[in-house]
């Protein structure tokens, strides 16, 4: 039997996202040239939700894209399997934009490294910021988040599971021991 603990429920997640939306606006002084890019798969719905909140607050729509980083991973040749490739859809130019990358969990930082390399192939943003719902520590690269929903100190053997769906009521963040 695995030990499982819910660390955030749907309401908690919603409140965190609202705060992060305001923080993004505060730091960037509005929505001018601001775009959000969610990382497949966990960051896509979060980016859409943040985008909606920011648009509501400012009354101006914010472009939201999605990015799949599979082809930029550093473990393709060593992982022993070819991973399924997801959809990348950034239907706007990144040149001169302030890009906020959005992901669910920040862990080793390797996904974010890959995402930054991928973004650079699509254009030349003015700056890239990072928003995550959960920062669980254990960085392996010099990467940090600009906006964090919740800091969640964890051990390496634990698993952090973020469930986000279109129907918000069942959203949750749980932490699970490996044995």
């Amino acid at each position: 039997m695995k030990k499982r603990k819910v660390v955030m429920d749907a309401e908690g997640i919603e409140r965190s996202l609202t705060r992060v939306a305001y923080q993004i606006l505060e730091k960037n002084k509005g929505v001018e040239n601001l775009v959000l890019v969610g990382i497949q798969k966990g960051g896509v719905l979060l980016a859409e939700r943040l985008g909606k909140k920011i648009s509501q607050i400012e009354g101006v729509p914010v472009p939201v894209g999605k990015l799949d980083i599979t082809l930029y991973r550093d473990d393709i040749m060593t992982s022993g399997r070819a991973r399924q490739i997801g959809k990348t859809d950034i239907p706007f130019s990144l040149d001169g934009k302030k890009v906020v990358l959005v992901d669910d969990v920040l862990f080793t930082g390797r996904t974010i490294r890959a995402a930054m390399d991928a973004l650079m192939d699509f254009g030349r943003p003015t700056l890239i910021q990072l928003a995550v719902l959960i920062d669980r520590g254990h960085r392996e690269l010099p990467i940090r988040a600009d906006f964090v929903g919740k800091n969640l100190p964890s051990s390496h053997s634990e698993e952090v599971i973020v469930k986000i769906s279109k129907r918000k009521t069942s959203d949750s963040v749980t932490i699970e021991e490996a044995f």
Partner: peptide, 18 residues
């Protein structure tokens, strides 16, 4: 998998480091 590779060939930078 081939379907997912279509858009690499339509980007401005037609190369991924895979």
């Amino acid at each position: 998998t081939a379907d997912s590779f279509i858009d690499v060939s339509t980007r401005e930078i037609k190369k991924v480091p895979t």
